[in-house]
Amino acid sequence: MNPLLIAYGSLALAIACEVTGSALLQKSEQFTKLIPTLGMAISFFAALFFLSQALKIIPLGLAYAIWAGLGIVLTALVGVFIFRQSIDAWALVGIALIVSGVVVMNTLSSSVRH
């Protein structure tokens, strides 16, 4: 299988685990609930493991930008749809700027090699 595909698959798993860990952090209620706290710890450990696997192929700057950018967007969506939290217009502008930065980095920057 294509190593780049495996690396981006690992990065996708890292993002999913990080978002899951963040949601469980909310559910842990400041570490007072055992099961969500354990799930959170496992999710964050898995996120770092999969990120480390992605870094075998994907440059650190690119991988971290994608991981952080998509993590922020997906975590915000979890907050809205799962926890019924609201996002104002300025938060949406900020999220759009983050996504724009990741897109610019991936498409226009010569410092990122694929």
Rank of each mutant, 00 (worst) to 15 (best):
N2R: 03
P3L: 09
L4R: 07
L5K: 03
A7R: 05
A7E: 06
Y8W: 10
Y8P: 01
Y8F: 15
S10D: 08
S10Y: 10
S10G: 06
A12D: 00
L13E: 12
L13I: 13
A14R: 13
I15R: 04
I15Q: 05
A16M: 15
C17Y: 12
C17S: 15
C17I: 13
E18N: 13
E18G: 15
E18Y: 06
E18K: 08
V19Q: 05
G21D: 15
G21H: 13
G21T: 15
S22R: 05
A23Y: 00
A23M: 09
A23N: 11
L24W: 08
Q26A: 07
Q26S: 07
K27V: 00
K27G: 00
E29V: 08
E29S: 11
Q30G: 10
T32K: 14
T32Q: 07
T32R: 10
T32Y: 01
K33H: 05
K33D: 04
K33I: 08
K33S: 03
L34M: 14
I35V: 15
I35P: 02
P36F: 09
P36A: 05
T37D: 10
L38D: 11
L38H: 03
G39S: 14
M40R: 13
A41D: 03
A41V: 14
I42Y: 13
I42M: 13
I42R: 13
S43R: 04
F44H: 08
F44S: 03
F44V: 12
F45N: 07
F45C: 12
F45E: 07
A46G: 09
L48S: 11
L48T: 06
L48M: 04
F49H: 13
F50Y: 07
F50W: 12
Q53P: 00
Q53S: 01
A54F: 05
L55C: 05
L55H: 03
L55P: 01
K56D: 00
I57R: 00
I58M: 04
G61N: 11
G61A: 09
L62K: 02
L62Q: 11
A63I: 05
A63T: 04
Y64E: 07
Y64F: 15
A65N: 07
A65S: 06
W67E: 11
W67L: 06
A68R: 00
G69L: 12
L70E: 02
G71C: 04
V73H: 11
T75S: 11
T75I: 07
A76Y: 06
L77E: 06
V78C: 12
G79L: 08
G79T: 09
G79Y: 01
V80H: 04
V80G: 01
I82D: 06
F83D: 09
R84K: 05
R84S: 08
R84W: 02
Q85V: 01
S86L: 06
A89V: 13
W90M: 15
W90Q: 05
A91N: 10
L92S: 05
L92E: 08
G94N: 13
G94K: 08
I95V: 14
I98R: 06
I98Q: 05
V99F: 14
S100R: 03
S100H: 01
G101T: 14
G101A: 05
V103M: 01
V104F: 04
M105L: 15
M105H: 05
T107I: 14
T107E: 13
S111H: 09
V112P: 04
V112D: 09
V112F: 10
V112T: 14
R113T: 09
H114K: 11
